[in-house]
Amino acid sequence: MVKSETTQLNTVFHALGDATRRQMLLELADGERTVGELAKPFEISLAAASKHIKVLEKAGLIRREVRWRTHVCHLEPAPLAGAHEWLGFYERFWTDRLDALERLLHKEDASQSPYDKEGDDP
């Protein structure tokens, strides 16, 4: 992986590491929101919301647009593709492991006689 891609991925995961920012992204998935609208569910100040938004902007996850005196935020999902790809490796890893476990358990069940199972009477 190229260093700039690694840096971008680190920035995205840092931004996603905070529950408030993840919820803000969820809100933005439904459409644009003002900074005030993003702050409201958390009962945080506009300054605190703005700090969270700056982290999301730095990660490239949102875009802020100024309309007169109102700051409107939009979701930019493209950086999530890199995170999804990175996590996909681990999804395949666990899926393969769980599939192997399932095969092993089926093989074990098939090798036991019906009366060997706990709780069954002959």
Rank of each mutant, 00 (worst) to 15 (best):
T20K: 12
T20W: 10
T20V: 14
T20L: 06
R21N: 05
R22D: 11
Q23W: 14
Q23P: 15
Q23D: 09
M24N: 00
M24A: 10
L25K: 09
L26A: 15
L26W: 14
E27H: 14
L28H: 12
L28D: 03
L28S: 06
E32D: 11
R33F: 01
T34W: 01
T34M: 14
E37T: 10
E37G: 08
L38V: 14
A39S: 13
P41G: 05
F42S: 15
E43S: 12
S45V: 09
S45I: 13
L46M: 09
A47G: 13
A47P: 07
A48P: 10
A49C: 12
S50Y: 02
S50L: 00
S50R: 11
S50M: 02
S50P: 12
H52G: 04
H52I: 02
I53F: 04
I53M: 07
K54Q: 04
K54P: 04
K54H: 04
L56D: 13
K58W: 06
G60S: 15
L61W: 05
R63Q: 13
R63D: 13
R63V: 03
R67Y: 06
R69E: 10
R69K: 11
T70P: 02
T70M: 06
V72G: 04
V72I: 13
C73W: 03
C73E: 07
C73D: 06
L75V: 00
E76L: 06
P77F: 01
P77T: 00
P79V: 01
L80G: 05
A81Q: 03
G82P: 09
G82L: 05
G82C: 07
G82A: 07
H84T: 11
E85H: 05
E85I: 00
W86V: 06
W86G: 07
L87W: 04
L87N: 05
L87C: 12
F89N: 08
Y90H: 08
E91K: 12
E91Q: 15
R92K: 07
R92A: 02
W94H: 06
D96V: 00
R97N: 03
D99E: 07
D99S: 01
A100H: 00
